[in-house]
């Protein structure tokens, strides 16, 4: 293998600029974290709501929720990025469409967050539904039998347990969202993968570049994992083992 190693590359200045390559990577890391966390908030709120609706005894609402899930599950994330970036602005009313295309601040970032958030919300909705349905049917009945209304039964009986059950799958989903955020490079968000490609072309030190970026992705995954494990420990119920039924 004929490769010229240069580990000092990160501290060299980019061609024709003031910044170092390290600055590029750190900027990329910042955008990756910003996109992932913002999308995660959208995904949690919307996914939770839709997951609950899918178990509600209301045909119309449940159907709408199913449509949402099927739409986001059956189109590749990258194609969804392009849909949000290129197609959706064309579907808006004329004035709004012009504003989005020309004046909207941080257009790439907002689009990526929206797209990734909605995409992940569909996956979270599935897990919320599965979590709720994995509870014994008798729990719902017991809630209703002491006179709680259906919303009260969800609030006090079903959701507290369902949330605990879905923390492990949510953990891997939280780690996924950092990985999936890489797709945002395609619409020009200057996140890690975008910077990796740019630095590789600019510096021609591909291996060092990719190693550093891979390491940064590892760090994201590790922090996400530890954070969720902390929540899992805090919410443990004595005498109840998740997964054992």
């Amino acid at each position: 293998m004929n490769y010229h190693w240069n580990w000092g590359i990160f501290f060299e200045q980019i061609q024709g600029g003031e910044e170092t390559y390290l600055d590029w990577l750190l900027t990329g890391f910042g955008w990756t974290v910003a996109v992932s966390i913002s999308a995660w908030l959208i995904a949690l709120l919307l996914g939770g709501l839709i997951g609950v609706l899918r178990t509600a005894p209301h045909r119309g609402l449940a159907f709408l929720a199913t449509c949402h899930v099927e739409f986001y599950r059956n189109i590749p994330l990258l194609v969804q990025m392009f849909l949000w970036f290129f197609v959706v602005p064309e579907l808006l009313p004329r004035e709004l469409s012009l504003w989005v295309k020309q004046d909207m601040p941080a257009k790439e970032f907002v689009t990526a967050v929206l797209c990734l958030g909605l995409f992940t919300s569909a996956r979270i909705a599935e897990q919320v539904r599965a979590g709720i349905q994995s509870l014994p049917r008798g729990q719902r009945m017991a809630g209703l039998a002491i006179g709680l209304t259906l919303p009260q039964t969800y609030r006090y009986v079903i959701l507290p347990m369902a949330i605990r059950i879905i923390i492990p799958p949510l953990t891997s989903e939280f780690m996924n969202i950092f990985k999936n955020s890489a797709v945002a490079f395609a619409i020009g968000v200057m996140e890690l993968t975008f910077q990796a490609r740019q630095m590789q072309e600019d510096s021609e030190q591909g291996i060092e570049t990719y190693l550093a970026v891979t390491l940064l992705y590892f760090i994201c995954a590790f922090i996400a994992n530890r954070g969720m494990a902390f929540i899992e420990r805090r919410s443990r119920v004595p005498g109840f083992i998740v997964g054992a039924k």
């Binding site: 009945m141 017991a142 039998a145 002491i146 006179g147 006090y156």
Partner: peptide, 28 residues
């Protein structure tokens, strides 16, 4: 819900709420 609150029910699988203490189960 009002009617059910006057009619006590006991289930085959107990259906206590696992995330609440016994006292909380009795109070909710």
């Amino acid at each position: 819900p009002r009617l059910r609150s006057h009619v006590g029910m006991v289930f085959q699988h107990f259906e206590l709420f696992p995330h609440m203490t016994i006292t909380e189960n009795l109070a909710i």
